[in-house]
Design a protein around this nucleic acid. Sequence first.
DNA 1: GGTCGGTTCAAACGATCGTTTGAGGATACG
DNA 2: CGTATCCTCAAACGATCGTTTGAACCGACC
Lengths: 204, 204
Amino acid sequence: MNSSGSTKERILGAAEVLFAQRGFDGASLRQLTTAAGVNLAAVNYHFGSKDKLVEQVFRRRLDALNASRLTALAKVAGAADTTLEDVLDAYIRPALDLSHDGSGSLFMRVLARAFAEHDDTLRQFLSANYGHVMRQFTAEFARLLPQLSKPELYWRIDLVTGALTHAMSGFGMIQRQKDVSENAHREETARHLIRFAVAGLSHP
Amino acid sequence: MNSSGSTKERILGAAEVLFAQRGFDGASLRQLTTAAGVNLAAVNYHFGSKDKLVEQVFRRRLDALNASRLTALAKVAGAADTTLEDVLDAYIRPALDLSHDGSGSLFMRVLARAFAEHDDTLRQFLSANYGHVMRQFTAEFARLLPQLSKPELYWRIDLVTGALTHAMSGFGMIQRQKDVSENAHREETARHLIRFAVAGLSHP
DNA sequence: GGTCGGTTCAAACGATCGTTTGAGGATACG
DNA sequence: CGTATCCTCAAACGATCGTTTGAACCGACC
């Protein structure tokens, strides 16, 4: 099937697809290794266990996402003329880019599924490894929205994140038309999200 | 363990808890029947299969949720002095009530997980069985927001739903304090959600 | 050529899964 | 009492799971 890259990378690629389609429990190592065109034992040889493979699937994408977010944030943070749209763009666009990078728009489904499945485990993992990213964005939002108390700001960022996750996962009523390119759909999603988020964040 | 109600109801109750905690694949019928205090074969006897049990878990809660939503909507829909807050309250509050009804705030996790797992299957199920509810709410939103085009309105309702789902599932940064009662937390969530949604729906 | 670490392979391991079976208990009605 | 119906039970079924094993392959280096 997939015949490019090292065995490790072929496994990671097939894992992302199958985990998104069938879930972590639902996707078996036999399906996975068959799709990747590698031997069944390769997963345990290269990753140690199925659980560690799951963790690697996350790390590979989340590292890229958060690095991209921080880079984008650094370009606009702290400036005198920074707008809410700028910061939201830095927050949203890398996520939307990620959601159709590589294996299509699958990773966000993996993430959404993981949120539902691993509960506290994943939450702690995200908080420990990527909490500083949220902290930097929160600080910049706080600078641009000084009238909001901290709890109020947390709530609003939380709701924005919910809308973002929902939109990225492709649930909901809005289905992409077949004749709309992926780029165009992503642009439309980003546009709606940012306008929605600006309104939700800055209302009195 | 659970010793009240019929065997069928004990199974449904235990299933809701375990599906939320471990997922549909992760929760085995042996764990489930042990927790419910019934025999292993009781699931297949009363429900036919594990899949049909999953469907019943959904129906029981979703029927109540949608009935509650429609009742609340009927009280405010079509009136001359209806506000956006009224309709949003009818949309949001039954969901928040459901999320901590009975077995605690577990069902929404079940639903969020199901969204991630069953993808098209669940989407079609929801659309076929409860699509008319969304249609009625959309019509009322359209009446109160005549300046919005249909695609624009769909997008905004979608993003509101994302924020609602996110908040109900208990993900995100906002964690309930231990000294805050469930009712107080639900009120706070509803208040933030409605204000956020009003801003996101009605912005120019 | 020989050998050695890294990798792939087919095969098997024990565990656990959803489901089925057939015997037995419980209750109601004649 | 007889029996018909609904339900529960322990036990087993075949299938599939993640993981392990030990042999075979392979390019690099002496």
